[in-house]
Simulated assay, not measured.
Amino acid sequence: IARIPPANVFTAISSGVHIQAEKENKQNWVDQLINAFRFNFNEPERKVTVVDVKEEARLSHLGIVPDSRRYNTFLIDIGSGNTKGGYFPNGNTNDFKLFQLTWGTKSVANATEKNLGSDNSLDNYNRQMARVLTTAENAEIIYSVNESGSFPMSDNVAFSGGIAWSLATLIYPELIENSVVPVTYEDVAAFSEKLLKNYSTLTDQYMAKTAGDKNLNMDAINKEVKRVNQVFDQRSLMAGTGLLLKIMRQFQSVNERKNFYLVKNGSVGWISAFVNQNFPK
């Protein structure tokens, strides 16, 4: 078996690790992690790059968005605890406008859970979630989108992250082979309604029973739908979908509508761009 030369192996620590260390005021955690990595692999000179939020978002754009849409696409990655992304406003890949929200799928779900009180019903969860999201929209989302200046600069808005992968899989299972799926605001709104009222129709068992097109790769569809349901339960799907809708809503205009896309493999985008950027030319 051919070995990959050490010079062609790149090591990086994502911004999430760095942010968590800063939150805990334990920056030494990162240093200890790097030192342990070098020691365990017996590579004391190994270069380990700590990627900050802006650089990770920039690399994600480079790794996910095709060159043909580089300068007219706003990329937004919805994570569990926050949301980040941005675009290139000046026609080059060095100047990157960072977009950030302190809300993610899990943080919306957690804030909703805290407001449930003694009523743990789904209806109350939906009601409290709407309040959490309205607060997030009024206090942060509207301002952050406007401040980014992205609306007049972007024809396309692409969403990545776990919730984007989940919705792409569940809304359009027939596009299982597509890594990027186009959607509309109405598609996502209808899906949100289905999550609340007909969640059972989104299981792999149900889809297997009701599949009408014999040309579809049902094995692949069922496997991916099952993965989605293992990662996200009904309530976390509701939280992530609700947050996505609030962000999409900022790009809905009477005079102009953006093209929305859900990216399935966004988690590896920044990594591939990082390797391309550092690989010896």
Rank of each mutant, 00 (worst) to 15 (best):
A211G: 07
Y206G: 07
G117E: 02
K194W: 04
T203G: 02
E113Q: 09
A168I: 02
A190Y: 01
V181M: 02
N138G: 08
A208C: 06
W165E: 10
S179T: 10
S160D: 06
A211I: 10
S118N: 15
N120G: 12
E177D: 14
M153P: 03
E224G: 03
S179A: 09
D123I: 08
Q205K: 13
K197L: 14
T210V: 15
W165D: 12
M207F: 05
L116G: 02
T210Y: 06
M129E: 10
E147N: 14
T135Q: 15
K214N: 11
A168P: 02
R227E: 12
N126A: 15
A136F: 12
T184S: 13
S160L: 08
E137W: 02
S166M: 04
T203K: 01
D123S: 11
N215F: 03
K114V: 06
L167T: 10
N126P: 04
M153T: 11
N146K: 13
N198I: 01
N138W: 10
N198L: 00
V180N: 02
V157T: 04
V132F: 09
K114A: 13
T184I: 11
Q128A: 06
V183W: 01
D213P: 01
A190G: 05
F191L: 00
E113L: 12
N126Y: 11
A136M: 06
E186H: 01
E224L: 09
S179F: 12
F191R: 00
K197F: 12
D213W: 03
P152Q: 05
M218S: 04
T135R: 13
K223N: 12
A190T: 11
R127T: 09
A158L: 15
I221Y: 00
L167Y: 03
E147A: 15
Q205M: 08
